[in-house]
Design a protein around this nucleic acid. Structure first.
Lengths: 322, 322
DNA sequence: GACTGCTCATAGGAGCAGCTTATGCCCCCA
DNA sequence: TGGGGGCATAAGCTGCTCCTATGAGCAGTC
């Protein structure tokens, strides 16, 4: 059994989860330890990091030490004049930074989800925008305008429009073909749809781009009818023979990606959703020529009610031209 | 003070860390809870997730409940027929997945760093490749060839070549202008260098690409002389007036990015390092025309010793053509 | 040459959090 | 009307991490 002495009828052969390792939490230090490591790396001393983190120096020392034991890697060169990262420690610290950044995005997002009332800025956004873009914006907003409490509601374009109309939201973000009626808005970005395939798929080895008719004629892994992705695809390929019946029709972007990665077939997903997979080469982008697979991401507000105050602050963060 | 009743002279006003929130670890559930949430989302029941995770059903129930209290968000719709994610819960789960994936990359990397001996595949890699690409490859390898123990050493090109020559490594990865002498290798990718600027910088609003002479004549935020980035840049701009003295010369890619984000000035960094920042619009890429800012990433091995077995497995993962 | 300041390490003691088992209630289906 | 799956509550135990207090090494200084 693991490190537990209490008798318990644990499943000795529990099936593997989607996310592999069963004892992941036992092999990855907790957030506090990782943050402490980042602080030590930045400040060059255990004691300094302890002060900044608000714990005692022995606590910091012990915590780093037990992290080294847990990982089986020496992270720090300690000396009477401070502590420096070892080469392996630098690498571990870089990997740790990723975890901490993900956690910050999580926290920023959840804070917005929680503060349903008495917040100075109430945002309504589509799922895609809320999932991939908003946490980053919120972190940026937190640094440029600390103390701005933001609340978040998610929904489709109609729901966002409704919240704005009812005065239950100050600023909305939608993806789609046009600005919902009754609202003003600006395009803040274009969400391109990428055709992606597993590295082993023939399309991953093509030299030239795909013709629209070829894409239309191939059975793909897609979201269900009615999803934003599906709408754009249907519309774009209508003049090229129409979209073939899907190979798989799945309920979430995550499931679509997973199917594509495991080789089920080519998929079409937002560029926002596959950055990581492309970088790690778990998926390969297949270029397509002669057809515009993208939709506008828009910030919207009630007609005439130009964003001011916190809403304007957030809006300006999102409008970095590309 | 926070939730601690023990008397202690904690720093009441500890300065803020690089990574914002002081109590981040208290606001973000631990990995086990996040994994449990992912399992519930996938399986549709608390008990099922408990079984898969290897804990008792009350433990799972209590853990999710306390996570809901901690976050201030209701994640699950519980019913006598199972549990489904609420809308907010789906969003939280997506954000949580990011954290878990980062943790898996961390774990995969650290495992390789730890298993210094008696591993079936000994890899030597440059810092950039080890940091950004290798964890993903290791995760892929773990799924396609479970049980392959990999060890990792990091170093510059010369060090990698030395380890391969000494028989202390089976496969190497280097970035640079050519294959080190005495080694065979293949190009597995091209690492493009991106010119990036904060969204507020004038370069972020340019409509046309930057001319090489303009880039060369501008003082940039860069790594120190001798770094790979710097070499490529020097070489590429040698014919365009030569690189201006740097605005800031920093010791790590992280520091360079941070300076650029905070508006110190434009920077030049590997595309691998700024994916996240570009996606979140914390940085904007500035196109450059007429100059090739890229270097090859190569897999290398001792001349004549073609990779076989685990080395060949890993190599094939990395060679997905682009 | 001892003093002061910084660093990190060790020792002993206390509180919080999570786990376990045992049990109860609710709903659906045969 | 039982059986089974689902979720919740109660009571007890274990272990982790924190705290304070103190020791020891190295530098620069008076």
């Amino acid at each position: 059994m693991s490190s537990r002495s209490t008798p318990h009828a644990a499943a000795a052969d529990a099936p593997r989860a989607e996310h592999g390792a069963p004892g992941l939490a036992h092999r990855v230090p907790d957030l506090g330890a990782l943050q402490l490591l980042l602080a030590v790396a930045r400040l060059g001393s255990l004691g300094g990091a302890a002060r900044e983190t608000g714990v005692s120096q022995p606590a910091a020392s012990g915590r780093i030490r037990s992290m080294e034991r847990q990982l089986g890697v020496t992270l720090l060169e300690r000396s009477p004049r401070g502590s420096r990262l070892t080469e392996a420690g630098a690498l571990v610290t870089d990997w740790a930074r990723r975890i901490v950044e993900s956690a910050e995005a999580f926290d920023a997002g959840v804070s917005a989800l929680r503060d349903q009332r008495d917040s100075r800025l109430r945002v309504a956004a589509s799922m895609t925008i809320a999932e991939y873009l908003l946490p980053g914006w919120l972190i940026a907003l937190r640094t440029s305008r600390p103390g701005t409490a933001v609340s978040l509601r998610v929904g489709n374009s109609a729901a966002v429009a409704g919240l704005l109309a009812d005065g239950q939201a100050d600023l909305g973000f939608v993806e789609g073909l046009g600005t919902p009626s009754g609202l003003d808005g600006v395009v803040i970005a274009h969400d391109r749809l990428f055709v992606v395939a597993a590295p082993g798929h023939p399309w991953a080895r093509r030299r030239g781009p795909l013709a629209p008719a070829e894409l239309a004629g191939t059975r793909l892994v897609l979201r269900e009818t009615g999803s934003g992705t599906r709408q754009v695809l249907d519309r774009a390929l209508a003049g090229h023979g129409g979209l073939a019946p899907p190979l798989l029709e799945l309920a979430s972007t995550t499931a679509v990606k997973a199917a594509a990665v495991s080789g089920a077939g080519p998929a079409v997903v937002s560029e926002l959703a596959v950055g990581e997979e492309l970088a790690a080469r778990r998926l390969v982008r297949v270029p397509v020529e002669g057809v515009e697979l993208s939709r506008a991401l828009r910030a919207v507000w009630p007609r005439g009610a130009r964003p001011a105050g916190p809403a304007r602050d957030l809006l300006s963060l999102t409008r970095a031209r590309r």
